[in-house]
Simulated assay, not measured.
Amino acid sequence: MIDLRKVALILSLIMLWGVTVVSAEITRGIDTFTEGVTINSGINADPTNLKSLYFSKIIQPNAVVDYEIQATRINLKDFIFLDTFMEINIDNYSVQKIAVKEAKKMSLVNKNDIYSNIIVSVPNGIVQEITSAKRIALRFQTAAGSYVYVLPDPVLAEWQQVINTEK
């Protein structure tokens, strides 16, 4: 006989494991107008907290390289991102504030939910720290306080790969 309790336990564990897995992917894009190249590490995180997070390396045709972090959240009004700053904590040692470069907010069909997106430019000094980091935590400011997201190890490894990728 099949023990339904064991089957339910196994299915529950599979579902819990599936919820904690972060979908990460490196993509490359070319701006056909400027011929610039963008290399992204993008994740779709827990949609109730952080819908997506992108780390981008933007290589201009004149060889200027910029880095950005873009975060998206769909949540209640009190939990949308503020357009002030984001903090980055590298290896529990270096905490730095980065000003928000761009912020977008939009009401969705469900009037209780708001789409919230911020972009921050990452200074070169922080990019250099990321290359050897073992742990990175991001603290986002919201109307209800702050929200912390710790990068899973595979995502941190992808960010380091993006930094080291050539055009």
Rank of each mutant, 00 (worst) to 15 (best):
I136N: 06
S121T: 08
L108R: 08
F140T: 06
I114W: 09
K134E: 15
D153G: 01
Y147H: 03
A143G: 12
G125V: 12
I98L: 10
E87G: 03
A143N: 15
Y115R: 14
I114A: 08
I126V: 12
R139V: 04
P154N: 14
N89G: 04
S107H: 14
Q160F: 06
A99I: 11
Q141L: 05
F140N: 06
E102T: 09
Q96F: 08
T142P: 01
R139C: 01
S116H: 08
V95A: 12
N89F: 08
V127F: 00
Y147V: 05
K111A: 14
Y115N: 13
E87T: 10
V100W: 02
L108F: 08
Q160P: 09
N124R: 08
L138C: 04
D113S: 10
N112M: 09
E129Y: 10
Y115D: 12
E158I: 00
V122F: 04
I126D: 07
Y149R: 05
I119M: 08
Q160V: 04
L156G: 07
M106G: 09
K111E: 15
D91P: 10
I88Y: 03
S146Y: 05
G125K: 13
S94V: 13
K134A: 10
L156Y: 07
K101H: 06
V109C: 01
L156D: 07
V148Q: 08
D153S: 09
V148Y: 01
G145P: 01
D153E: 11
K97R: 14
R139A: 03
P152D: 11
I136F: 06
Y93S: 15
V120Q: 03
Y93P: 00
S146H: 03
P152L: 00
I126C: 07
A137M: 11
D91N: 15
A137Q: 12
L156K: 09
R135W: 01
L151K: 05
K105C: 00
V148H: 00
A144D: 12
Q160K: 15
A133D: 11
Y147I: 01
A157C: 01
K111F: 11
A157Y: 06
K97H: 04
D153T: 06
I90N: 07
I118W: 01
M86L: 14
I90Q: 08
G145E: 02
D153I: 07
K111C: 01
Y115E: 15
Q160E: 10
A133K: 09
M86T: 12
S116I: 08
W159H: 02
K101D: 10
A143L: 15
N112A: 11
S132Y: 11
